[in-house]
Amino acid sequence: MYYWRTDLHLDSTERAFLKQHHINKVYCRYFDVVMSDDGTEPKPNATIAFTDTLPAGIELIPTVYITEDCMQKPHKDLAEKLVKRIMQMNETNHIGNVHEIQIDCDYTSKSRATYYQFLETIKSQLSTIHYQLSTTIRLHQLSMPVPPVDYGVLMVYNTGDPRKWQERNPILDYRDVYPYLNKLAQYQLPLAAAYPVYQWIRNIQNVRIEHTIEAAELLKVKKTLEKERPCLSKAVITYHLETDNINRYKTETYEEIYHH
């Protein structure tokens, strides 16, 4: 599962869920990297606090979200600073059992070359300590050359245009996934898949709109993707760990998501 809050703190429902579904990895957002207000350089933002620990036996994967504008040109030492900061956070908070770092970025054809070079630098940093490197892959990125990482996580959410919410669910709609299926089979990188279990609530012209995925739609998309690329069922991630999300679906739905 992804853990995307600014404080690592689990309640009894969340702990029970991890155990019940044999979750063995938690991708934990450590901080974001955003451009400074004056637009000169990237800086960390919204760093997580660790007031709690994950249950024993669960591997924690530090995950960093980088905004795309940070990758429109190279920034000296950014990769080194990022790795160093993660290591310091692990040390300060006594976090062991770490073997991987994940970077999340919605790179475009414009920022791709800079981003891939940035990943190369991180990868060479990590090779000395035998860490893996992974990155998120959005559906529109499947048509680009593959990034220099050990594997990618196909993000099967936020697939729609939020402005067209009356006709489509912007979190996930089969019709928005369908056009990318032909790219999936031949994509030359090992992939895991991440599915949405969250709700998106927003106000549009003072009306409260709630976007929630129907279990049937989610499972239909999952089945279709796995038909195109059967190995996608080997590593399944959900976004994100929170009691409200756990309670949103029946246990059977989660079992279908996690166990093919």
Results as ranks from 00 to 15, higher is better:
204 I>N: 05
184 L>P: 04
143 S>C: 14
155 M>E: 10
161 D>A: 07
130 H>E: 13
187 Y>I: 00
210 E>C: 10
186 Q>T: 15
166 Q>L: 14
151 Y>C: 07
165 W>K: 11
163 R>C: 02
154 L>A: 07
176 D>A: 02
156 V>C: 13
137 I>R: 05
182 N>I: 08
132 Q>N: 14
180 Y>H: 12
133 L>A: 01
165 W>D: 11
131 Y>C: 08
177 V>N: 00
146 V>Y: 12
184 L>E: 02
134 S>I: 04
138 R>Y: 10
195 Y>P: 02
158 N>T: 05
201 I>W: 03
161 D>L: 10
207 V>A: 13
157 Y>K: 04
210 E>Y: 05
133 L>C: 00
166 Q>F: 12
148 P>C: 02
137 I>T: 06
147 P>C: 04
136 T>F: 07
184 L>I: 03
208 R>K: 15
160 G>V: 08
206 N>S: 10
135 T>D: 06
170 P>C: 06
142 L>V: 06
172 L>V: 05
213 I>Q: 08
189 L>N: 01
186 Q>Y: 12
167 E>D: 15
167 E>S: 15
202 R>D: 11
166 Q>H: 15
186 Q>D: 14
184 L>G: 02
195 Y>V: 01
174 Y>D: 03
137 I>W: 11
208 R>T: 15
141 Q>C: 05
209 I>V: 15
139 L>Y: 07
150 D>S: 07
156 V>W: 01
130 H>D: 13
152 G>R: 01
186 Q>G: 09
148 P>V: 01
172 L>F: 09
193 A>D: 01
170 P>G: 12
191 L>C: 05
181 L>R: 09
215 A>D: 05
163 R>H: 10
153 V>D: 08
195 Y>E: 01
173 D>P: 06
193 A>N: 00
146 V>T: 13
206 N>W: 02
130 H>R: 14
143 S>L: 12
195 Y>K: 03
144 M>S: 12
210 E>Q: 13
216 A>N: 14
214 E>R: 11
151 Y>L: 08
162 P>S: 06
208 R>E: 14
175 R>Y: 02
175 R>S: 12
210 E>K: 13
168 R>D: 09
148 P>Y: 03
159 T>M: 11
166 Q>A: 14
154 L>T: 07
213 I>A: 04
211 H>L: 12
179 P>D: 09
141 Q>T: 00
205 Q>K: 11
133 L>K: 03
135 T>N: 12
166 Q>N: 13
178 Y>I: 07
131 Y>M: 08
132 Q>K: 15
197 V>K: 06
156 V>P: 04
150 D>T: 03
142 L>A: 06
210 E>M: 11
140 H>W: 09
209 I>A: 02
170 P>V: 11
210 E>R: 14
197 V>F: 10
199 Q>V: 13
185 A>G: 04
147 P>R: 07
169 N>D: 05
172 L>M: 13
160 G>S: 09
205 Q>I: 00
185 A>N: 09
154 L>I: 04
199 Q>T: 14
147 P>Y: 06
